[in-house]
Design a protein around this nucleic acid. Sequence first.
DNA 1: GCGCGAAATGATACCTGATCGCGGAACGCC
DNA 2: GGCGTTCCGCGATCAGGTATCATTTCGCGC
Lengths: 145, 145
Amino acid sequence: MEGKDLRKAGLKVTLPRLKILEILEGSKTRHVSAEDIYRSLLESNEDIGLATVYRVLTQFEAAGLVTRHHFEDGMAVFELNQGTHHDHIVCLDCGRVEEFMEAGIEERQTAVAQKLGFTIRDHSLILYGNCQRLPNCPHRNRKSS
Amino acid sequence: MEGKDLRKAGLKVTLPRLKILEILEGSKTRHVSAEDIYRSLLESNEDIGLATVYRVLTQFEAAGLVTRHHFEDGMAVFELNQGTHHDHIVCLDCGRVEEFMEAGIEERQTAVAQKLGFTIRDHSLILYGNCQRLPNCPHRNRKSS
DNA sequence: GCGCGAAATGATACCTGATCGCGGAACGCC
DNA sequence: GGCGTTCCGCGATCAGGTATCATTTCGCGC
């Protein structure tokens, strides 16, 4: 993803937007907060204000480039859209986020909505659990809730 | 629900707690924010501080009397627990909230979590849609998103 | 390349939802 | 009723996020 993707999305190509895209792509965790991005920018000695980070993320969301999630702590995190829809499961011990997609669940959601007289537009499904501290958990010893 | 329920929950019976319980029970919408409750209290000329409302709601949550939800706008709303688990569907036009429960969805959630090596502890499923402005929608003409 | 108007940015003040700290008040066991 | 413990009201405070506005940057037409 690069300049032309921004233009395609109807956004001017500016340095802050490029840098933020870059960070979203390069991030290991896929789910980052505005502050995370701001901190990354500072570390790369980019002189980009926090307000700009928020503005750009909001524009990216409106343009469909990223999705905004609210996990349990209420703080917004952002994720680069890579085509396919999915839901999330969050480890309460280590904060790790896994993604999944279950056609059966999706179907039933639509059915339920219809039964209640709603036209479904969107949904948010987040499971919370413990990831059993598998040895390969990359987030072990992170802050506990 | 009354004084003895508070005591059963390990909480002293105090006027603020009783009043707040009362409001939760009497509320038409079942899903109310701390500010909603605070406003109700002011209207009834109760001299109860906003901080107390938050404290009491947090205690109620810890005691299992209420559940806290974060709908799309991020603001917390509280709902009196009346036994059965359920999920929510929110109308994007009018803000109406309906509740539903789909055993098939619940089952699949557990299965997915297990497959990913998680022990599921909790989940949040919220559908967003349009309620087709049925004539009996009690929320028509509320703020639009 | 260059100039120019529109759009974007950075700094900072501000807003809102929520929490903290503390002196004084209320609860409830006796 | 008396008294220790818990709770409460108030105001200060915090954190995430937004609005304002002067300055800078983009990119189109030349």
